[in-house]
């Protein structure tokens, strides 16, 4: 089976969306990544990644209710799809296999 490709940043975003289950929208995701990974994320970079992931079918989104904050703009909530979950698992398994394949002597410094 051909595996869907998942980049490093994409993986981070996808995982963060899963962490923030039920409350995963733009600013929150950005904030969460910045907090956990200690790196700056621009809204532009994050938003394009989100769109890309949605297009690949790893995410779905829906608009929430309008609130007074955010200049009256609605939030877009993201949720990981089963396919998204499968891809994440595949990535993890793949990493696991790679780890398992490392001979013991390799890390004996």
């Amino acid at each position: 089976m051909k595996r869907a490709h998942l980049g490093e940043f994409e993986e981070t975003v996808l995982l963060t969306v899963a962490i923030l289950f039920g409350n995963a929208y733009g600013f929150n995701i950005k904030h969460e990544i910045e907090k956990r990974n200690q790196r700056k994320v621009s809204i532009g970079a994050m938003r394009t990644t989100l769109s890309r992931l949605e297009k690949k079918g790893f995410l779905v989104s829906e608009l929430g209710e309008a609130t007074k904050v955010r200049g009256g703009k609605r939030k877009r909530y993201f949720k990981v799809t089963p396919f998204g979950k499968k891809v994440l698992e595949e990535v993890m398994e793949n990493r696991q296999q790679l780890w398992n394949a490392i001979p013991g002597a390799a890390f004996n410094f």
Binding site: Y25, I43, R47, G71, K73, R76
Partner: peptide
């Protein structure tokens, strides 16, 4: 819409 909201 949501981008503008996030920016806000």
């Amino acid at each position: 819409e949501d981008v503008e909201g996030d920016l806000h």
